[in-house]
Amino acid sequence: MAKVLIVDDEPHLRLLYETELRRAGYETMTASNAAQGLEFVDTMRPDLVVLDIRMAGMDGIEALQRILERNNSIPVVLNTAFSSYRDNYLTWAADAYVTKSSDVTELLETVKNILDGRLAARS
């Protein structure tokens, strides 16, 4: 079962994503800030990271670079309320960019596509 790390400083959103990803069959873990997220990337070796951009402290863009510096094989999905980050080339290194919505279908599909693709590539 693939492990998905959710990094978001909004507890209710973490709960929502956790609920929905679990229902979709993934193992989940959550971090409430970027620093904790980086730590979990090292210690828990997730298969995919769902990363919020606007967070107190270190933001998601910096976190993205640090994650890729440690392990650039981990796919990262940027999940943000701000579609404007799409224009920031620093976000282009992410595998996907999803605009936050109460309809989590897009997020779930994106996660699934990436993980299925990895699986297919590995086998």
Binding site: L16, T19, E20, A81
Partner: peptide, 20 residues
């Protein structure tokens, strides 16, 4: 509008969860 977005995601997201 931005500030409203996150709460809306939570409200709507859980409403969908409930619906399901």
């Amino acid at each position: 509008a931005h500030e409203l977005r996150n709460p809306l995601v939570a409200i709507g997201g859980f409403a969908r969860t409930l619906t399901r």
